[in-house]
């Protein structure tokens, strides 16, 4: 057995974790190798002392000191949960709003656009279609109004009706 393997077995022997046959193998090597015997002694002393360590007492009132910290933790946790879900909800809400707005724009009909007289003429419609029923009533005042507007659209605005 080489010293490298022997050192591995020495480490295991400290824990009493040698597999069957390994102990005999190690003992045989130790009889022949003074360096490994020395190593074994060092290992046993170093790790033996570590295992015998006496720990100091922990500070008193451990649970009493811990309790208020846990209480704070609970309130902080609930705030964190709100924050977490709030942050997740924000983009979703925004997306839903955009979808809703798009649907409204697509499906709700927009108000009919008022056409200019030129556009009406282009569509081959009578621009006075709205005033026709009034004119058809044949009232004198309506005719006067009609004349006024006609004159305003004419070449000079001097043609005015004076009753």
């Amino acid at each position: 057995m080489k010293c490298k393997k022997a050192e591995k077995l020495i480490s295991r022997s400290v824990d009493r974790a040698l597999k069957p046959g390994e102990e005999e193998e190690l003992l045989k090597h130790l009889k022949e190798c003074p360096l490994c015997r020395q190593k074994k002694e060092e290992y046993e002393n170093i790790f033996g002392i570590l295992g015998e360590q006496v720990f100091p007492e922990s500070k008193p009132y451990f649970w009493t000191r811990l309790k208020p910290k846990l209480k704070r933790e609970v309130s902080y946790e609930s705030w964190l949960a709100w924050k977490k879900w709030g942050l997740r909800a924000a983009p979703v809400s925004l997306l839903l709003l955009i979808i809703f707005a798009s649907l409204v724009m697509i499906f709700v009909p927009s108000e009919q656009k008022e056409l200019s007289s030129a556009e009406i003429l282009l569509q081959n419609q009578n621009p006075f279609v709205e005033s026709l029923p009034l004119l058809e009533e044949g009232r004198i005042e309506n005719e006067n109004i009609h004349l006024i507007f006609t004159s305003m659209n004419g070449e000079n605005g001097a043609r005015r009706y004076f009753p």
């Binding site: 591995k8 480490s11 020395q38 190593k39 002694e41 290992y43 170093i46």
Partner: peptide, 22 residues
């Protein structure tokens, strides 16, 4: 890992190892 850790500890403690012999 335990073997490597112990080996390394023994190495860093080299100047004091004589103190841990019988």
């Amino acid at each position: 890992r335990l073997f490597r850790a112990r080996k390394k500890l023994r190495k860093v403690m080299a100047p004091y190892l004589s103190l841990f012999r019988r």
